[in-house]
Design a protein around this nucleic acid. Sequence first.
DNA 1: TATAGATATTTTAATCTTAAAGTATCAGCA
DNA 2: TGCTGATACTTTAAGATTAAAATATCTATA
Lengths: 156, 156
Amino acid sequence: MSTPSKDRLRLWLRLLGLTRHVDGHLRDKLRLEFKTTLPRFDVMAALSRHPEGLKMSQLSGVLRVSNGNVTGIADRLAEEGLVERVPVPGDRRAMILRLTPAGNVEFAQQATAHEGWINDMLHGISAADARLMAAQLIAVAQAAENKEEINDPSHA
Amino acid sequence: MSTPSKDRLRLWLRLLGLTRHVDGHLRDKLRLEFKTTLPRFDVMAALSRHPEGLKMSQLSGVLRVSNGNVTGIADRLAEEGLVERVPVPGDRRAMILRLTPAGNVEFAQQATAHEGWINDMLHGISAADARLMAAQLIAVAQAAENKEEINDPSHA
DNA sequence: TATAGATATTTTAATCTTAAAGTATCAGCA
DNA sequence: TGCTGATACTTTAAGATTAAAATATCTATA
């Protein structure tokens, strides 16, 4: 049987299946080839896009994870000398987290490999199709977010 | 700049973004409306598709998670009387996990709500588009898996 | 039968994750 | 100055997750 609701459920299950598959593969690769994890990679990627560093709260904001979560990951990366906490002049509550030179070197290697793994896994999709699907997904995501605003006007 | 590799990377980031968004929403809903979690829901969903129950190892196989992972979730569900462990006649090592009658009732409600949440979130996609995108994603997933077999023939 | 290797599950140690509570600091105002 | 509420971060408790080690049982075979 096929109803619109079931069709959307099946789409979601496909989406989830593919994402988990790729995600799992990336985690394996990061562990085996760089002895690191996806959350650590995500933190370093965010810092890499902001060479001047990010406050802990900004970091948890862009990564969309909790504050406490970032604390632990930052602790472990700092222990290995890949990131460092810098005091914020004028606000003794805040700390800026930024990549160390060693962290920059390490992340550059990881990012290159990361792009390559994804290119390999998604090689069955042409560049044109990839752009098309990405555009479709943007539309889907926007529809989903609009729907939420209707249900929860607090975001306004 | 746009290279095939970057196009695929961007597609992956979109895919991941949408999936995390929907996934997070589902987790929130399960927690707020049913005081449960997605991993618990996943276990119950798998058992629901197999009314006679599944051995622990079969369950971790179906869900593609580790054995130890299922042990903990099953423990907590069993504590609440939603699932039960049944000995396997003729093999004292193995245990079958199955939904209790209470678990069946509870899951039926969760599954209905779950389908509704997804239908709401993906309402911006027509049923026809949903079927089309699902078909596209199957092709993508197959391409990704074929790629892996080439790199790792052990799966043959 | 004894045992060696395979199989099914649980346990353990580490990381990730969140919500909620706790600590320190800041900013505005009486 | 001293208070109050907000802000920035860390800590805590609980669950999820994995790989690897530990247990228990089974199976085949010498």
